[in-house]
């Protein structure tokens, strides 16, 4: 707000202009956009630029800095704990596929009339609203030997001796961590899918039910086409999300026993070891990878959905035809 006054002052020499529509327009634009743009610049683009600069130095946050050229970048690729950590992303990608599958399945169930549907929805959604640190404690507790998870499995007939250490055993601990992330987000994905399914005209379902289409057919011919976009979007988001996986290992294992994802390693290097240059190089490398992946996704989207947008009415007609076909088939069988 203070800035807008400063800008307004020199304009006093054109008071008429300022009072005119155009002057008003510029004034309101500057007054309304200056704060968010300054915040955006200071907290996003300035650090982004600085990080690029840091990546060529050997430095700590405080003290002398030494220019080392591309050395940090070659370290990112040669150090085993840096670039190699990216392969853990595969676990998280797998997890997000499972998560989307569960979410889609439950969303389909809940989008039909189900007794107590809202309660189920609420219970499954709530994990999304728990803060990250609490989740860390909850799952350290959950996975501790002989505690919650082991007890539940013993109820199901497993022997404690046959169960692994969920967070220590390197064959299994990454799956345990990915499980927590699935636990946290499947309800949220489900709510998104329900929203998308509900946006379909409910008459379509009624018509289909009247015509005798069963649930699976309704899913295939009405629900799936209508939420194709949001599913694709989520699959795509999960790829970048998996590359930058951070929270589960950070709050639960602190990256110990081979669970340190790329960003956990970067966090450790930046804030504990204070090798800011190397951490910056790591960040830049991953950002470039993410940008490339995002770019590819945009292309993919354009290729797959650009034509889809034009064809939308046609797709709808096709869907209706398919429905008609089902109903005629069903009708034929019932009569």
């Amino acid at each position: 707000m203070a800035n807008s006054k400063q800008i307004a002052k020199p304009k006093r020499s054109f008071p008429d202009w300022l009072r005119s529509r155009d002057g008003q327009k510029v004034l309101v634009m500057v007054a309304f956009m200056i704060v968010p743009l300054v915040l955006l610049f200071v907290f996003t683009y300035l650090p982004f630029g600085q990080m690029f600069g840091f990546s060529f130095y050997n430095m700590k946050y405080i003290g002398a800095r030494k220019f080392v050229g591309l050395k940090n970048y070659s370290k990112v690729f040669s150090r085993k704990d840096c670039f190699g950590a990216l392969k853990l992303s595969l676990y998280y990608m797998l997890g997000s596929v499972v998560q989307l599958g569960i979410a889609l399945y439950l969303a389909t169930i809940l989008s039909f009339k189900v007794k107590g549907g809202n309660v189920f929805k609420g219970l499954m959604f709530f994990p999304f609203l728990i803060n990250g640190i609490a989740i860390g404690f909850i799952f350290k507790f959950f996975y501790t030997r002989g505690f919650v998870f082991d007890t539940v499995l013993q109820w199901c007939g497993f022997q404690l001796d046959n169960l692994p250490y969920w967070l220590r055993d390197q064959r299994i601990n990454n799956f345990s961590l990915v499980g927590t992330s699935v636990w946290r987000y499947f309800g949220q994905n489900m709510v998104l899918f329900i929203g998308a399914i509900m946006s379909v005209d409910s008459e379509l379902y009624e018509a289909a039910t009247l015509d005798g289409a069963n649930r699976f057919q309704q899913f295939k011919y009405i629900i799936l086409p209508s939420i194709k976009t949001i599913i694709t979007l989520n699959v795509i988001l999960s790829i970048t999300g998996s590359l930058s996986a951070f929270e589960p290992p950070y709050v639960i294992t602190d990256g110990a026993n081979g669970t340190g994802t790329y960003f956990v390693v970067m966090h450790e290097i930046a804030h504990t070891q204070q090798k800011v240059g190397l951490a910056s190089a790591m960040a830049i490398v991953l950002l470039i990878i993410i940008l490339i992946v995002t770019g590819l996704q945009k292309l993919f989207f354009k290729y797959v959905f650009k034509s889809g947008e034009d064809e939308d009415p046609r797709a709808a007609i096709k869907r209706e035809k398919q429905l008609a076909r089902i109903s005629s088939r069903k009708g034929g069988a019932a009569v």
Binding site: M33, L37, L40, V42, F43, T44, Y45, L46, P47, F48, Q50, M51, F54, Y61, T240, S244, F246, F263, M266, H267, A270, H271, V276, A279, S280, A283, L286, L287, I290, T294
Partner: peptide, 25 residues
Amino acid sequence: IRNLFLFASQLPGVAMQVALYEIMY
């Protein structure tokens, strides 16, 4: 401006803090 905000939202926060820490300091 819209794209600047959209792009900013795609940058992972954890990575940004590496440099933001100095600015905050």
